[in-house]
Lab assay of single mutants.
Amino acid sequence: MEVRTIKVFTTVDNINLHTQVVDMSMTYGQQFGPTYLDGADVTKIKPHNSHEGKTFYVLPNDDTLRVEAFEYYHTTDPSFLGRYMSALNHTKKWKYPQVNGLTSIKWADNNCYLATALLTLQQIELKFNPPALQDAYYRARAGEAANFCALILAYCNKTVGELGDVRETMSYLFQHANLDSCKRVLNVVCKTCGQQQTTLKGVEAVMYMGTLSYEQFKKGVQIPCTCGKQATKYLVQQESPFVMMSAPPAQYELKHGTFTCASEYTGNYQCGHYKHITSKETLYCIDGALLTKSSEYKGPITDVFYKENSYTTTIK
């Protein structure tokens, strides 16, 4: 009895394709271990004539594949690729409408935090270190965002349907971005203890939790000093293409032309909904596939993004 075979390709990165001759009487799992086709788990399936010449994702289970996976995804987590594939199996079914010149995501599976993050990423200057993220990001900007969303979920250790947080998501993504040249110098002034300067680099240099107003941050924000008295913390120097200011959701007025974009969060910790506000020729609110415009805006804002380049204080 002759062994019926077909020729397929296996890959971990969709760049390096490895030619395989597979036995049609055995499952993919018996031949390769966990195997995925377009995100779908085909591990328990036997090869079919229609699979001839198709590319299958496999887990990096030998040295060659491990090197290829690390170079593309910059992670050695053995569960990463499987999590990416199972997320992709959902995100490829989502709709990605162009809204006001940006790629958004039609609401499904509690994905409003991903839509808000995706919209924000198209408006701030950011370059990702893992080629996987950078490639998928370019495709997302062009309207094909399924891979990018699935990668975000995998890097953030999230599953489809789980509630997510924009600030946490951005923080994970910033860790995989090139923020080497970003720098922030802060000064804390206390009447009792004097003053202390701190220099922050990388992710810490672009994120701040405690106030939404970048102007206020430049002037000074009140913080408790270690001595128990009130101290003032203010920005001395900022070198970065953008800054992200966050605070627990509270009524906040966004003035046209003073910011790049913002995240609105309605609801409580267990259950809520994100919308995205962007400042173009007027203010726009993007909620999944829905767009509304207004000249002014007041609502429960939790993150505001500002364009920056270089700032030095005039406070002496």
Rank of each mutant, 00 (worst) to 15 (best):
W94Q: 04
L290F: 13
M170V: 06
K46S: 12
N268K: 09
A40K: 13
H74I: 06
C261T: 02
K293N: 11
I15N: 10
K191L: 09
W107H: 02
D135L: 08
T266S: 13
K183R: 13
V58K: 07
E2W: 08
Y57Q: 08
Q222D: 10
Q123W: 04
K255S: 09
E215I: 05
H51P: 04
A117P: 03
Q30G: 12
K92C: 08
M26V: 13
P97R: 09
E2D: 14
K46F: 11
Y269K: 14
L186I: 13
Q251H: 15
T266N: 09
T75D: 08
G210C: 01
L254G: 00
A136N: 09
Y284S: 10
V160R: 05
M24R: 11
T159Q: 14
R184F: 03
S86P: 05
T314P: 09
L200M: 10
C285M: 15
E2Q: 10
T292N: 09
S310R: 15
Y113A: 05
T292S: 12
N111K: 04
P249Y: 00
R66N: 11
L283E: 01
D287H: 00
D77M: 06
G39Y: 10
Q222Y: 09
R4E: 12
N157Q: 09
K191V: 15
G101K: 05
D109I: 03
V160L: 05
C193W: 01
K229M: 14
F259I: 00
E71P: 02
T103F: 09
F128S: 03
Q216F: 04
E215A: 09
I286W: 00
C156M: 14
D287M: 02
H273A: 00
T260I: 15
Q238T: 02
V304D: 01
E296C: 14
K191Q: 14
C285L: 11
F242I: 00
C149T: 10
E125I: 04
G143N: 04
S246H: 01
L81I: 14
E239L: 10
H273E: 00
P248Q: 12
K275S: 11
L290P: 00
T91A: 06
E264W: 03
M24A: 15
V221Q: 07
P130K: 04
A108S: 10
K54N: 14
E215S: 08
Q196Y: 14
L283P: 00
K191F: 08
Y155A: 03
V185H: 03
F56N: 03
K218V: 06
K7Y: 09
G53C: 11
